[in-house]
Each structure stands twice: as C-alpha cells, then as structure tokens.
Design a protein around this nucleic acid. Structure first.
Lengths: 211, 211
DNA sequence: TCTTGAAATTGACCGCAGTCAAGACGCAGA
DNA sequence: TCTGCGTCTTGACTGCGGTCAATTTCAAGA
C-alpha cells in the first residue's frame, strides 16, 4: 500500500505511520502567524509520525514531500494493536520516540545557550559524520535558506554566520564546505563533548573523535 | 524499596525509573558552563527518568530533590524486561514519552516565537488549570527566580514581564496572582488556541475554555 | 548573448532581552 | 527594634539577532 503524497496537515488527527520508500520529506511545525520551523529532513528508509500516533488528539506537526515520493502508510490502529501483542515492537518504538525526545532537548539548549555561529558549526560537524567521516569535505544537502530555518535563524543571519566561520578557516564554495580547521570548530561548537575529548586542543583532534 | 535521595547526575547511566511517593523533585539540564534549565517540577505520584531508560547511553538530564523525598526506584532492566512481556505497559510508556516529546516541541516554539511576557501569561493559564479551574486566583508554587529559569528567562526579565501583565489588568500581590482580566490574557498568550475559541474576544471567554 | 527571477550576500538600523549595579522589601534572629 | 541576608525590583547600558532594503550572483530559457 503506497501512495504519492503531497502534504499532511497540522491539527488533523493522524491516521497513519509513514515509511518512506522513495523520495524525501520534511516534518515541520507551523504557527498561526505563518512561521514555519523545520523539525527533520527525511529520506528513503526513514519513518515519520511514529511518535504522533501515540500522543492522542490532533497532530502537533505537519509534513510535506520535498519531491514526489513513495510512502508506505501503515494505519495507526494496526500499529497500536500490534504493540499490545508484540512487546518487542513497543520497545523499538520507545527507542525511536525517546531518541526524538532527546533531540528535542538538545535543540532546546542549543537555541538557548549557543550562538547562531555555534549552531551552524555544530550542524556542519553532524553533516560530516553523516556524509563521510573520512573526508573533511561536506556538501549542503538543502538550500541555505531552508537550513537556516531548520537551525532557527533567518537567512541573513545564516549568511553572516557562514562568513564568521570562513574567517575561522573553514573554506566555503557555494554548497561545498571544507572543514580544514576542523578541530577548532569541534571545540568551538560543542564545549560539552570537547571537555571529554582526549585530544582537546591538539591538531590531532578530528570531528568524530568527540561524538 | 524506597530511599531518601538527594541528587542524580547528568552523564551517568540511568539505572532506575523513579516514582515519587512523597516530596518534590525537579528534573533539569545543566551545561558545562554551569547554566541550569529546569525541565519539570514534580510532586508525589509523578514518575521521572521514564523516557531516559530507553534512550541508551548516558542521561541527558539530572534530577534533584527540592526537599527530602521518598522515592520508589524500579530497576531499569526490570522495566525493559516487562515491556517485552506486557504490551500494555509498552503502550502506556509510549503515551508518557510522546507526551514529554510534545511538551518539548511546544517549549521550542514558545521560546522561538513568543515573548517573555507571553510565556509568563501562558504559564499562569496552565497554573490556573492545574490548581483550580473554578477560581481566577492562583498561587505561585515556587520562588520567582526558579520559575524564571523554567521559562528560559532571567529573574530581571521575569520581573519586568510581571510588571507588563500588571499593566494589562492582572493583579499581583507577592505570590498571589489574580487573573481578573483572564480572557485578554488567554488570547494574548496563545493565539493558536484563541483562533479556535468560540468565545473569542468576548468577556465570556475564560481560560480553560480554550485548552 | 541577453533577460529574468530566485537565492544569497551585504549594509544600516532598531528593539528586545541580557548584564551589571543599585535600591527596596520581607523575614528571621539577636 | 535593629541588623543582616536573600529575594525581588528597577534603572542604565550593551550587544546580538531581526528587519528592511539594495546589491550581487547564478542558472534557466529565449
């Protein structure tokens, strides 16, 4: 059972758990004023609305396909029934949902305690880990204004933050970023992990050693 | 099995799920710089570390007792084992954890989109619902500087926000607050719900009609 | 090659919340 | 009653990020 889907509305009751067979989707929150904040950017193999179907009531989040996508839609009652029968499924879902929760908490204190520059640098480190931990070159997977929104800042602020990182020795060429001076970035953006990094302050410290 | 506990450290592995038999506890996040952000303030009957024991790895949160308290400590492996056997337990936990998650999301966009004054007003409305929906008088359950921290602002900002609310017709006498002009507050602080409130803009609109 | 439009960058300005410091208030103990 | 201490309040200042506007860059299409 799969469909080409375009958009799901916030406020609606969520009737399905979605699995992305092909394409890409983003989940987001939007307020009455029209502001939108991207929560996650998803690709084939990811699920979404997994937490929402256990919240009860209407959905606090919305999703839109970034391009025509194939989704497997599993009816929520089926999942809920199956959790009752299969404890293992319940545990797996608990892992997924607690992971979302942990991410949300990290996002809260990155908003509260970190500057836009630090948030951007930290985002680069995560990209680096996701894309290819061997290479110090990364590629921006979305257009900059969209990433800016995801990081909770305006495009202008994003642009200025990028400039500051460039001054710190990070090479920027359109959507290609080169983390030449990666160890500085690592400790600059994530003092918590830097604190426990054995190579702290040395040129041997590569991003990825920390997380 | 219960103990008088004082503090649990962030970064430790979490070995128990805690149930508060008597007393009060707050959960919080603290950064390396020494900043602390209160997540929840808990009283008898509440549980905590319920999500954390499914996250794997070390704990992103910390807890401290606000006064000597009696806690029931259920070992994490017991819970995890029992989830595998009892699907109903899994579903209950999923409800709890997704509720935490929803709260975290709400907190994120209240930080991003709302002013300190709105956050405080919204906090008053929630207190009103928790304490006594019949009465328009509420009482601050903690000292102001602690509530300020919970709302992600400095005590000075809290004080100024309180002043603004006073100018809007809310009576403040030390820790006693009287929501005389409640319907204004309701729509001022929570435009999302206000939008769907049938009594919007009329004096009949009481806080509580909306949520 | 020229045109067009969207995205990104840059500059100037402004407002809000944080910071620092001083003062007011309430409360407990001598 | 006076003293001392902690909490809260108030004021003055500052800096950061948002807003608005102008400019640049780039890519697609005629």
């Amino acid at each position: 059972m799969n469909r080409v889907a375009k958009s799901f509305n916030q406020g609606d009751e969520v009737k399905f758990l979605y699995f992305i067979i092909d394409g890409s989707v983003k989940t987001l929150r939007s307020s009455i004023e029209g502001d939108e904040a991207t929560i996650r950017m998803l690709k084939a193999g990811d699920t979404f609305m997994d937490a929402v179907i256990f919240m009860g009531g209407t959905s606090p989040i919305r999703a839109t396909a970034l391009k025509p996508s194939k989704l497997l839609m599993i009816p929520a009652p089926v999942i809920r029934q199956q959790v009752l029968r299969d404890g293992q499924l319940g545990e797996n879902l608990l892992h997924i949902v607690t992971w979302h929760y942990k991410n949300a908490m990290q996002q809260i204190d990155s908003i509260v305690t970190k500057t836009p520059v630090e948030r951007l640098g930290y985002y680069f480190l995560k990209l680096h880990m996701d894309q290819n931990p061997e290479s110090l070159d990364i590629e921006l997977p979305f257009q900059k204004s969209m990433i800016a929104n995801h990081l909770g800042m305006k495009p202008e602020t994003f642009s200025r933050a990028l400039k500051k990182l460039r001054e710190m020795g990070i090479e920027v060429d359109h959507e290609r970023i080169s983390l030449r001076d990666a160890y500085t970035l690592c400790h600059f953006c994530d003092p918590d992990t830097a604190y426990t990094c054995p190579k702290q302050g040395t040129p041997d410290c590569n991003p990825g050693d920390c997380r």
